[in-house]
């Protein structure tokens, strides 16, 4: 029953974000949801709260376009965003066969030959830029430039500009934090260029 959704007014997108409590999975999923809303697309997300946020496995589901359920079924995700490499073998079950993944991995991890799995040492980059906690945004920046926006022939439902605007909306009052966050996204984007 793997449905095709030709009837939908715009292509829908399902993304699963995975990480450990404290890595900022929730922040990225809310940012992307915000970017979707800014484009006028209906969005549903599902978040992990409670006990798991204390360092346990945290998963967010993000569904852009007309969906009823907030959860992504196994084998249906268009994309996977992995902040903790150790979750990857586990959560790749969410991906559909042609899906893509971006993975925050230890240096030296090779992209997989099929070309759809992209790895980057976001932790290391964020640390060397003096903003360790922003590895989530570095990975997001990486995804934005590596995958590209759908509007521009890429794979992601939103553009880098959309993410920057969403960031500005969320952190607008905290000027220095906003700048640091934008820098982290930019750093990731730099490394996403092929």
């Amino acid at each position: 029953m793997n449905g095709k959704n030709e009837a939908m007014p715009f292509p829908r997108q399902q993304i699963v974000l995975s990480g450990l409590g404290g890595q900022g999975v929730l922040f990225v999923s809310r940012l992307l949801a915000e970017a979707a809303i800014r484009k006028g697309e209906p969005v549903l997300t599902s978040e992990t709260h409670g006990m798991a946020q204390r360092g346990g496995v945290v998963v967010s589901h993000l569904k852009v376009g007309g969906f009823a359920s907030p959860l992504v079924r196994a084998g249906q995700a268009d994309g996977l965003f992995v902040l903790s490499e150790e979750n990857f073998p586990h959560h790749r079950a969410f991906l559909r066969p042609a899906g893509w993944a971006v993975v925050n991995a230890r240096p030296g991890r090779k992209d997989e030959p099929r070309g759809a799995i992209h790895a980057i040492d976001a932790d290391g980059l964020a640390l060397s830029a003096g903003n360790g906690p922003a590895a989530n945004l570095v990975l997001l920046g990486f995804a934005l430039s590596r995958l590209g926006a759908r509007d521009e022939g890429g794979l992601l439902f939103c553009t880098a500009e959309g993410v920057r605007e969403a960031l500005a909306e969320r952190l607008g009052e905290k000027g220095s934090l906003l700048q640091a966050s934008l820098d982290a996204v930019a750093l990731g984007m730099l490394h996403g260029k092929r």
Binding site: M1, R54, G56, A74, A93
Partner: peptide
């Protein structure tokens, strides 16, 4: 009475257990 729905959900939790900060 149709085919489908054979994909199992990824097991909850995975590797890391929660811990005190």
């Amino acid at each position: 009475g149709v085919a489908g729905g054979s994909v199992a959900p990824p097991a909850e939790g995975g590797g890391r257990r929660p811990t005190l900060c």
